[in-house]
């Protein structure tokens, strides 16, 4: 359905908080109000937000396990094939399948593939690299990596109604609430006072 739905005029509404506990409270309240399509932006990881925002547990661990197993099985059998089948080499009279001597390389390849999977999986599942995102259109958003905490409720959420949601966010003691545009324009709610 969403595929054919009209894109909302704005990306969403964003509230800025000056302390982590205020954000956490806001996120919990927003969830109980029935908002789902929302995200929080913080300068450091806050594990508590995972529950408050209802973030599903990531399947990254499973992906990493698969990568590690691929490295292990592939690594071992490649050595077996190279040393025992493709070009059998007699080294000191050892058996061609001298499996204990294949373990160090098998181990290293397990780690290499699993670690690569953890990094590449995290980056791509997070949708990075993405240098442009609507939230960057908010002027003060650069403080999200410093000391401010943001909560953004997206316009695609079925419960979202611009005026109602704005009033709701303003009731949560934010520093201010602003509109997140799809394309950077003048911020309608934000007045340049600082």
């Amino acid at each position: 359905m969403r595929l054919f739905a009209k894109r909302p005029d704005i990306y969403g509404l964003m509230a800025e908080f000056d302390a982590p506990e205020k954000l956490l409270y806001a996120a919990e309240r927003a969830k109980s109000e029935g908002y789902h399509e929302m995200d929080a932006f913080t300068p450091f990881p806050m594990e508590e937000l995972t529950d408050a925002l209802g973030i599903r547990h990531t399947k990254l661990s499973l992906f990493v396990l698969c990568c590690g197993l691929a490295g292990m099985i592939g690594g071992f059998f490649f050595q077996y094939w190279a040393m025992a089948i493709d070009y059998p080499l007699n080294i000191g009279g050892r058996p061609f399948n001298s499996w204990p001597q294949f373990i160090p390389v098998t181990f290293e390849l397990t780690i290499l593939l699993a670690a690569s999977g953890a990094v590449i999986g995290m980056i791509f599942r997070n949708g990075l690299p993405r240098p442009l995102h609507p939230v960057f259109n908010v002027d003060r958003f650069e403080l999200a990596t410093k000391d401010k905490f943001f909560l953004c409720i997206e316009a695609i959420d079925p419960t979202f109604e611009q005026e109602k949601t704005k009033a709701f966010l303003e009731s949560l003691q934010p520093t201010y609430v602003t509109v997140v545009e799809h394309v950077r324009t003048k911020d309608p709610y934000h007045h340049d006072e600082d």
Partner: peptide
């Protein structure tokens, strides 16, 4: 930084990845 924006969804996956690493 590849457009890192400190999203809670990202942090969640990030922390898992970091711990796995």
């Amino acid at each position: 930084a590849m457009g890192w924006r400190g999203s809670a969804h990202h942090w969640h996956r990030y922390e898992t990845s970091y711990l796995l690493l």
